[in-house]
Amino acid sequence: MPDISYLNALVIQVRRDILRQVHKVNSGHPGGSLGCTEFFVAMFQVIMDRKEGFEMDGIGEDLFFLSNGHISPVFYSVLARSGYFPVDELNTFRLINSRLQGHPTTHEGLPGIRVASGSLGQGMSVSIGAAQTKKLNNDDHLVFTLCGDGELQEGQNWEAIMYAAAHKVDNLVVTVDYNGQQIDGATDDVIPLGDLKAKFQAFGWDVLEIANGNDLQQVIDGMKKAKERTGNQKPVCVLMTTVMGNGVDFMMHTHAWHGKAPNDEQLEIGLSQNPETLGDY
C-alpha cells in the first residue's frame, strides 16, 4: 500500500483535477465527484487487486463499475493518476473528439471503462453479470460498484438487489454514496430513501457502514472489511456517508453544486483551499 501521506496528497490533487476539469468546459458534476474523492483513491490505490494495463475482460483482477456516471471527473482523474491513460488527457474532458465523454463510455475506448453509465440505475445489474462471469471462469477476484443514493430511486436497482441475494452473488461489493443530495434537493425532500440499511438487509444483503466517507483511513478500513465479508453467500453493501462537495467549503452540504461548474473566482477559491500537491495536468 502506498504511503498514507502520498494518498492524502493524491486526494487533494484529484480535487484540483475535478475543479479544473469542470471549470474549463463550464459543465459537469463537481459535487458528487468531490464527495467520492477519498473513495476512488482508496479503491484504485489500496483496495483493488489490479493488473497493469487494461483489458476489457479483466480476468484475474478486481473490477470496478461506476453506476452514477455523472461523477466522471473524479473517475477520470483517479484513472489517469493510476496509470490508465495520460494525465494530460484530463484537458480534453467533455470536449469534441475526446475519449473523456461527459459520462463514461466504452465507445471511445478509454482504458479503465468497462460499460457506459450515466442513465442511472443500470450499473448494479451490469456488475452482477460481471461477478457471475467471474464465478463461471473460476476467477476468485471481486467486483466493486459505486452507485448514488438518489440513484436508488430507479427501480432496476431493486430488481438487481433481489436477484443478487437470490443467486448468492457474494463476490460483489456495492458501495452507496450516501450524501443525501440529488439534483432537485435533499433526497429526504425529493423521495426519501427510508432506512437503507434495513432495506438491503431485508433483501438478504450483508450491510456495512462507513460513518465518514471523506476520512481516507476510514474508507480504506471500511472497504478492507467489506472485502473480508465477501464469499459468505451474500452480496455485500457498504453505506458510505459522504458530504457532497467535500473539500471546497462553499460547495459542501448542498445540492447546489451537483451539476454546476465554478466560475473563475470560485475556481480560485476552491483551488486555494486545495493547494497543488502532485502537480497539475
Binding site: G58, S125, V126, S127, Q132, T133, E159
Partner: peptide
C-alpha cells in the same frame, strides 16, 4: 443448470446482467 440464469420478472435487470456477463468472455 450452471450456465442458466433465472432472472424472474425483471427484464431491465436481465439486460444489465447480460451486458456484464460479456465481460470475461461469456456469450449471453
Amino acid at each position: 443448470p450452471e450456465r442458466f440464469f433465472q432472472v424472474g420478472i425483471a427484464e431491465a435487470n436481465m439486460m444489465g446482467i447480460a451486458a456484464g456477463m460479456t465481460i470475461g468472455g461469456k456469450i449471453p
